[in-house]
């Protein structure tokens, strides 16, 4: 009995002693922090994705509270509503940003952009990109090793094993930009998000000359400039043999889609415009037939040849200067298509 008593007593004394020490230590080393930081952190989504430029939500909350002007700060995950709520709480002016979505600008599927060699290194786009041009003849397009998928904290981007390209789920994508930073080829872009996930964009980032592109990939932009001419809003510019549609100026009129001879301009969430009977420069190009949205069969081979010829004429010098890629390159397309 006595033993029990002493034990309990000793433990009690020890406990009290420890509590006192802890109390004074806590007093001495207390860090004064604005309680609003905790509140703001709670209002943020808590994904810690780094899309705002800070290491995590805490860093963002800290900056939101401490800075007077928070118009530069924006949480892409929480979006405008979240920022408005925080701004109202802090009594500051919020940044306004339109919703955006990550867009993969490469249409070089396994079928359209045949493999000419086999990558056997570490499964990382960054490693492959620092080594060489990639498994296909195209030195600009998607490498297909999935750095973007690994970077996504929202399960919004996945590789499609059939095409070998990543696909974004626009409903899950928060436009945090992690995949944009992860992609060493800069294939992914944050573009304006239209209602119903509609989109029109050039699904190619190749700056090679038309003939070089044609050789490597059947879905690449050859920089012919037809889309630029047809655009009524001045949204399309062609620079370095590559067309770019400015998402701020584009009105989704879809005229350019029908003009593109290679189908590099991608149309999502809408039907293409009806085919015009009028026959301009490349009459048999029948571009809409190969579009993504309708599951139309392949364009007539004659059409493709016509396009190829047009491209060859456009850049004859480039064709000669272009090197033959590995010997297999010239043979492969005929095998696979």
């Amino acid at each position: 009995m006595e033993v029990l008593l002493y034990t309990i007593l000793t433990l009690c004394v020890l406990g009290v002693l420890a509590a006192v020490i802890l109390y004074f230590v806590a007093q001495k080393f207390r860090v004064e922090e604005d309680p609003r930081i905790d509140e703001v952190e709670k209002m943020l989504p808590g994904a810690n994705c780094g899309g705002c430029g800070f290491a995590g939500c805490r860093g963002m909350a800290d900056a939101l509270v401490k800075r007077d002007d928070i118009s530069e700060l924006f949480c892409p995950v929480g979006g405008g509503d979240c920022m408005k709520a925080i701004a109202a709480y802090l009594g500051k002016a919020a940044a306004e940003k339109q919703p955006e979505v990550a867009t993969v600008r490469c249409g070089g599927t396994c079928e359209k952009r045949p493999r000419t060699n086999e990558y056997n290194g570490a499964k990382s786009c960054a490693v492959a990109a620092s080594l060489y041009a990639g498994e296909t003849g195209c030195a600009f397009g998607c490498l297909g090793l999935g750095d973007c998928v690994a970077a996504c904290a929202f399960d919004a981007i996945h590789m499609n094993p059939e095409t070998g390209l990543p696909e974004v789920d626009p409903d899950k994508c928060t436009a945090c930009g992690a995949c944009v930073k992860a992609c060493p080829k800069m294939v992914i872009e944050l573009r304006k998000k239209w209602p119903k996930n509609r989109a029109v964009y050039v699904s190619c980032v190749s700056k090679d000359k038309g003939a070089v592109v044609m050789k490597a990939c059947k879905a690449g932009c050859i920089g012919c400039g037809k889309c630029e001419k047809v655009c009524a809003f001045g949204a399309i510019t062609v620079e370095n043999n590559l067309a770019y549609i400015d998402p701020q100026k584009c009105k989704l009129c879809r005229k350019c889609v029908n003009e593109c001879p290679t189908g590099a301009i991608k149309l999502v969430g809408m039907d293409p415009l009806p085919k015009e009977p009028k026959a301009p420069a490349a009459p048999k190009a029948a571009p809409a037939a190969e579009k993504v949205a309708p599951a139309a069969p392949k364009a007539a081979p004659a059409a493709e040849k016509a396009v190829e010829k047009a491209a060859e004429k456009a850049a004859p010098a480039a064709e000669k200067a272009a090197p033959k890629t590995a010997p297999a390159a010239t043979k492969e397309p005929s095998h696979e298509s």
Binding site: L131, Y132, A133, G137, A139, A317, A321, A322, P323, T325
Partner: peptide
């Protein structure tokens, strides 16, 4: 015959004199 971009051994295009 050319001073232009040509693919190197790694398939990357760089400036070469032909």
């Amino acid at each position: 015959t050319a001073v232009d971009m040509v693919a190197n051994g790694q398939g990357l295009r760089q400036m070469m004199i032909t």
